[in-house]
Amino acid sequence: MSRYLLLLLSNLFVGTSWAQLGPTGGRDTSFSIAGSFTKEVKYHPELQLAHPDLPANVRKTAAQTYKRIPAGRELQLDVFQPTSRKLRPAILMIHGGGWRSGDRSHNYTLAGQLAARGYVTVTADYRLSTEALYPAAVHDLKAAISWIRRNAKNYAIDPRKLAVLGFSAGGQLAALIGTTNGNPAFDASGSADSSNVQAIIDLDGILAFIHPESGEGDDSKSTSAATYWFGYSKTAKPELWKQGSALTHVGAATPPTLFLNSSVARMHAGRDDFIAVLNQHGIYSEVHTFENAPHTFLFFEPWFTPTLAYIDGFLRRVFSSSN
């Protein structure tokens, strides 16, 4: 067998071929809250699952279709809102799972508790890499923001005060969505301004894929989650990986940003460089790091309650100053 053929086969098996990888199909259930608990409680015996019950002063409107895609597929979201009809800020919540696993139910507990504190929270589906490659997820979630704005009156939402929140891969997406406000290249609806957000909340989501702090894109043993999402390795198409990095787009139009981080440093790659740009433009940001906390800190006590408090405090500061 020739050396060239060996190299080609090697590239194919580790997911770094020159040809684009397509969606893998099927459903990836590798990431779950229960699985994370089983893994982390070995190292953190004090771990407790955040209480999942819906607060009494919150109502949930489930399974609202916000986008239809080919073959009759519907993308849906759930709305959690306080029972009073006072006009309130809204938060789009994006689940994690490496751009290929997870589902919107992972955000239900946090969504309910934030709604109890006076926000309308929205948990949304988006297409994962098993179904569609980058930038489909970005297009989907910007469409969800546009849906929120169009339906603001139905849910007593102040359309001038929309935030995007995400965990892990969802945090990466939240930051990318917020830094591309008004950019038609990232909005397939044709009306980019309708998907603008006024605040970003990034829970352990990376800001830059190609960065000294990033661990994404190592295909040496198996195809990485990010390679599956982009469809190319970062060496084959580095420009694509840079385009999908929020750090590439951060600038004067970026909204105030909150970073909540675990002790896993690679999960916030590019954060300090991102904040440096915000500082250049006088844009407000906050950083809170939970020492010795696992990546999935937001699902568990003793970190869930302070996570909730940090988000609430940040949004009250940001949105009260925009009145």
Rank of each mutant, 00 (worst) to 15 (best):
Leu54Gly: 00
Phe319Ser: 06
Lys237Tyr: 09
Phe230Leu: 14
Arg127Ala: 06
Phe304Gly: 00
Glu286Val: 02
Ile210Lys: 06
Leu258Gly: 04
Asn279Cys: 04
Tyr284Asn: 08
His281Met: 04
Pro23Phe: 01
Ser146Phe: 05
Gly25Ile: 00
Gly72Val: 04
Leu7Cys: 11
Tyr4Phe: 15
Phe297Lys: 11
Tyr43Leu: 15
Leu75Pro: 12
Pro255Asn: 05
Thr227Asp: 00
Asp53Ile: 13
Pro135Lys: 11
Leu92Ile: 07
Ala225Asn: 14
Phe37Gly: 08
Leu162Tyr: 09
Ser285Leu: 04
Leu114Arg: 06
Tyr155Phe: 15
Gly178Met: 08
Leu278Lys: 02
Phe209His: 06
Arg160Ser: 14
Ser32Asn: 12
Ile177Tyr: 09
His249Asp: 01
Gly15Cys: 09
Gly98Asn: 03
Ala50Gln: 02
Val120Asp: 09
Thr61Phe: 12
Pro256Ser: 05
Ser168His: 02
Leu8Ile: 15
Asp140Arg: 00
Ser220Gln: 12
Ser84Phe: 13
Val138Ala: 09
Lys60Met: 12
Tyr108His: 10
Ser224Asn: 11
Glu286Ile: 03
Val277Arg: 10
Leu173Glu: 04
Pro212Tyr: 06
Ile69Asn: 00
Ala276Pro: 03
Ala309Tyr: 08
Leu9Trp: 03
Thr130Cys: 02
Gly244Ile: 07
Ala156Ile: 10
Gly182Met: 07
Pro159Tyr: 01
Glu213Gln: 14
Gly98Met: 13
Leu47Phe: 07
Ser262Asn: 02
Lys42Met: 12
Gly217His: 09
Ala276Val: 10
Ala137Met: 09
Trp99Pro: 08
Phe31Leu: 13
Val138Asp: 00
Gly118Met: 05
Asn292Cys: 05
Thr289Phe: 09
Gly98Gln: 03
Phe209Ser: 10
Val14Asn: 15
Ala236Gln: 06
Asp140Tyr: 02
